[in-house]
Nucleic acid binder design. Structure first.
Lengths: 78, 78
DNA sequence: AGTAATTTGTTCGTATGTATC
DNA sequence: AGATACATACGAACAAATTAC
């Protein structure tokens, strides 16, 4: 499950939240590290910005990342 | 009548049209002023974007506001 | 010092699907 | 059957701040 399925009944944004959580928890993005930019995530997963921003917002609300405007989103300390 | 009643027989969009008219006519949004964005209105009234866009469209057709794409909707001169 | 590229913030435009009344 | 209403999803445009060179 490393890609998004547009045909699934599970919303794309929920799928991508799960993917990004896995990438963070696996250690691919350690605390303090910048996650890929919105544009990069759009291209990597073939989704719209709307969807990416929603995913980032959810990760932020759940405390996994924090966003610095015009810089990017960093993985939070755990 | 500053909030929307989802249980009413009056459609939500009509209720919201009435509310926004009142807000405009009361002077809360003077001519030239931007009204709240679609997203803000969604959150303020707990309605979907569909409904908000319909409200804005009606206000526009009635000449109370005019919309500039990617900017917002301004209160018209009266 | 200054310009260009990058990145997030914000807003409206459009379309589709689903459910309810 | 039709109107109402919400959710999802992609685009496009522009602003503003930061970073890179």
């Amino acid at each position: 499950m490393d890609q998004v399925d547009h045909g699934s009944y599970v919303p794309v944004y929920q799928q991508l939240v799960a993917i990004m959580k896995k990438r963070i928890e696996s250690g691919e993005f350690p605390p303090g590290r910048l996650i890929p930019s919105e544009k990069t995530l759009q291209q990597e997963y073939g989704v719209g910005r709307d969807t990416v921003r929603r995913v980032v917002e959810i990760l932020r609300e759940e405390g996994l990342i924090f966003t610095v405007p015009h810089r990017g989103s960093y993985v939070a300390e755990r």
